[in-house]
Structure formats: C-alpha cells, structure tokens
Amino acid sequence: MSDVSSPSSPSLSGPRSILRLVQVFARLGTHSEGQTLAQLCQSLALPKTTLFTMLKVLEHADYLTNTDGVYRLGPQAVALGKIMAESPQRSFPHCAKDALQALSESTGETGFLAILTPDDRYCTYVAAVETDNWLRFSVKVGSQKPSYATGSGQAMLAYIPDARLQKLLADLEFAALTPKTVACTADLTLRLQQVRKRHVSTVDSGTVAGVTSVAAPIFSADGAVMAAVTVGGPTSRVNKSLEAVEDAVRASAIDISRILGYRGQWPA
C-alpha cells in the first residue's frame, strides 16, 4: 500500500479539497452499493476532472476501492471511521465535562455521571459538578450505589438488553435504604417501563431521604446505553421546577450521546 502523500501519488491540497474528501466519504458511507463517477459528480456537484483526480488519490491509498467503475469505501476508510467512532468513548467522561457543567448551572443542582458495574448491580459515579447552593446533594466520584435504587441506575437498567436485565432480577435482593426505596421486582419493572416511555428516571428518596434525582440514559455510537447523566438535589427544591429539570436532563443526555457519536432516536 502506498502512502497518500508519497511523491509518486496524485496530490490534493487546500481547504476546499478537504471538504470534498469529507463529502465523498459521507456519500459512499451512506450508499453501501457504491457509486459511479457520474453519480458522485451529480450528487456532489463537482467537476468530473476534479472528482476523478480525487478518487484516484483515495483509491491509490486504499481509502476507496474501484470495481468496474463503482467506488466503495476501502479498508483504510473503514479503519479511520472506527477510530473516530471510538475516540469520544475513550475520553469519557472528560468529553462530557462542559455539558455536565452547563446542566448543573441551568438547574442550580449538582450534576453527575454514572456507569453500571459489569454485573449491573451497582452504578459508579465517574464525574460530578456541584452547585454553589449551600444546601446541596454531594456525590463522591468513585462511590457506588445499588442500581435498582437510584435514578442513574434505573435510567441505565431500562435500556440494557432484556437477557441482562432478567439475569439481574433473578436473584436481586432489595434493601430498604429509605422508606421510599423500590422494594420488589414488580415495582422495579414498572419503573423501568416508565423510564422507557418518558426517557427520564425521577426518584424521590431512593438512597437518601429528602433527595430527588432526575436521570436520563446516555448512548454510545452503536446505540448501547453507556452511562447516565443525573441531577440531584433537595426534594423540596427540585419538585418546584421538576418538569423543567427533567427537560434539561433529557436534553443533556442527548447532547452527550451526540458527542459520543450516537445519531439515532431514543430507543423505544
């Protein structure tokens, strides 16, 4: 395989050429059957000679393949796409820092991110931004809580594959952390159904009496639930603007999911 920048290869330069390269990749990425030179010229509104030179460069470097005049993404383009898709996930939760900060500021409450442990029994808090309010809910990064009892946990459990959920429920022991903690499988199942319907989990006094958490699921590029973004604060204060808080948390979850490469709708 020759390097795209080698002296013997055709060359492209300039900002317009970079944009055209992206347009070619995007077009072929959404047309797995491939595209001919004529089809690409028509869809991208590019001169035939300019586009032909570009395609030859990409083909020479294995970013495209050419079979009987039909161009498709090549192995180098596929490898590049995989790297780009995985990059945001590798930087999580750092890549969500600004979104989390904005959520905390807009709601006036502590915002935090959580992920499930491998056995789905606990959620681990991986990032937090505390509000300036003197009366606030504090989260220690690295701490864990039972997933069934928290807004974060329920937001994620609602979207894990059913086989995983059934395995968890088969021998899950419920502990009454507060008088309002979810107490049985039937109750938890109903709550998870509500989360899938509303795309948000609101839990009053799940693990700490007098604290309400509002959480929404975060999805990775492949559509799998990856984490949850949550706001937590005194129930008396959160409930005064609960609808607005829920809307803000849902919007933040969508923003972070987009950062991670997710482009779909909320899974049903």
Rank of each mutant, 00 (worst) to 15 (best):
L21D: 02
H199N: 13
A216S: 15
R198L: 14
A45R: 13
L188H: 14
D171W: 01
S252Y: 01
A128N: 05
G29K: 05
A99R: 08
A251S: 13
S147N: 07
V245T: 14
E33P: 09
A158V: 05
G142A: 06
D171E: 12
R90Q: 14
L100T: 11
L188A: 14
V139T: 12
A114R: 02
A183F: 08
L103M: 06
S236H: 03
A102Q: 14
A61P: 02
T131S: 15
V57F: 11
L51N: 15
A155I: 07
G81I: 01
G74W: 08
C95L: 08
S13D: 14
S201D: 10
K48G: 03
E109T: 02
S91G: 02
D119P: 00
L177C: 07
K48Q: 13
S8I: 15
L260P: 00
R16A: 14
E246F: 06
R27V: 13
S147M: 09
T53N: 13
V126R: 07
T185L: 07
D204R: 11
A114Y: 02
T150N: 07
R250E: 00
D120Q: 05
P47F: 04
V225A: 00
L157N: 02
Q76P: 02
M1C: 10
G232P: 06
S11L: 03
K140Q: 13
R136V: 11
V249W: 01
A158Q: 01
R20C: 00
S152K: 05
A227E: 01
V245D: 05
L177Q: 12
Q39I: 02
P47A: 11
D3A: 12
S147K: 03
L40F: 04
M1W: 12
A268F: 02
Y63Q: 08
T150F: 07
P118R: 01
A26T: 12
V200I: 15
T131I: 03
A227D: 02
L169V: 13
P47L: 04
D120H: 09
T124P: 00
A175H: 12
T189N: 11
V24Y: 11
S104M: 10
A102F: 04
A85F: 06
K82D: 10
S104N: 04
K167E: 09
T30I: 10
K240M: 13
S13R: 14
F25E: 08
D3P: 08
A99G: 02
P217S: 08
A186P: 03
D120Y: 06
K145E: 06
T235Q: 03
R136S: 15
A102M: 07
D3N: 14
D204T: 06
L260I: 01
V182I: 15
F174K: 11
R191C: 04
L28V: 09
A186R: 12
Q42D: 14
V139R: 05
I115W: 05
S43F: 06
V22R: 13
L19S: 04
P88S: 00
G151F: 06
L37C: 01
T67F: 07
L192W: 13
G264N: 10
S5M: 05
Q101L: 14
R198I: 04
E243L: 14
T189Y: 07
R16D: 09
